[in-house]
Design a protein around this nucleic acid. Structure first.
Lengths: 148, 148
DNA sequence: TATTGTTATACTCTATAACTATA
DNA sequence: TATAGTTATAGAGTATAACAATA
């Protein structure tokens, strides 16, 4: 077979990118953390934690929706007290979305859950293999796979 | 930091599982292969190629929708001539979804595209690293990550 | 004139619940 | 009675296009 490695990675990716993989993971992660937190609001919260306070327009590409989508999701998070809106000092048209203390705590909890979940799944792996896996996986995603 | 490896894999996964990653990939893969082929019908075609002829109910979990969703998507593929329905000899309630010759050709083309796309993105990697990455990635997905 | 956040509209896709036929 | 495929319905979420305010 030509390009066997490409095919092997491809097959794994198809499984990993299934819609149900994403949905299951997010459902499990956000379980019991309040109604505001689900598959839709999680990426907004997560992106905000990764990059710090940003406007909806800035956040949109990272959240995977357009700015109207960010508005809708952020409003749910705001009602739940996880996010607040602040005027942007450098642009009076814009608002900055900022994680509240409770929002920060929730993000920390989410990250712990995810990391634990993953390591639990890899518990049967030989020692050191997880580390060896993490490095190229990280590089693979940093290369912005399938970017436009 | 506690469980650093878990956190590292987690961060990479969050990026990889973004809705836009999935959408972009499928859009690029199915480009120019006819209107019937898109993000929705691709998983049906792909699962069918992986497992051989199956009923809609059987296929549903792999396609990530319920059986009514499989019916809708399979009907689009049938109109396009990529899939045909055959009576199930062992159960007269069921129909088997079968790839046509054209469907098989399209799947082969899709697989080539995906594998090429991936290897192109990894072209800058040191020799042998792609192979080292493929093995644990495959194991990771085979372990049914985040299964119920 | 362009871009901000927000909202209303039209559209797509889904799961649910029906339905008939068969196990 | 339960399960097959299919279809209609209701609900959720999106992008698009508007809007007023600011750049």
């Amino acid at each position: 077979m030509e390009n066997a490695v490409g095919h092997e990675i491809a097959e794994a990716l198809v499984v990993l990118l299934r819609r149900t993989t994403r949905t299951r993971l997010h459902k499990r992660l956000t379980e019991g953390l309040g109604e505001a937190l689900d598959e839709l609001t999680y990426p907004v919260l997560s992106a905000l934690a990764r990059t710090g306070p940003r406007s909806a327009a800035d956040l949109a590409p990272d959240a995977g929706v357009d700015r109207s989508g960010v508005t809708r999701r952020a409003s749910r998070l705001e009602v739940a007290g996880l996010v607040r809106r602040e005027p942007d000092p450098s642009d009076r048209r814009a608002h900055l979305l900022v994680l509240t203390d409770e929002g920060l705590a929730v993000v920390a909890e989410l990250r712990e859950r995810l990391a634990d979940q993953i390591m639990a799944g890899l518990a049967a792996w030989p020692p050191g293999e997880a580390e060896e896996f993490a490095r190229p996986l990280r590089r693979f995603t940093v290369d912005e796979p399938f970017a436009p």
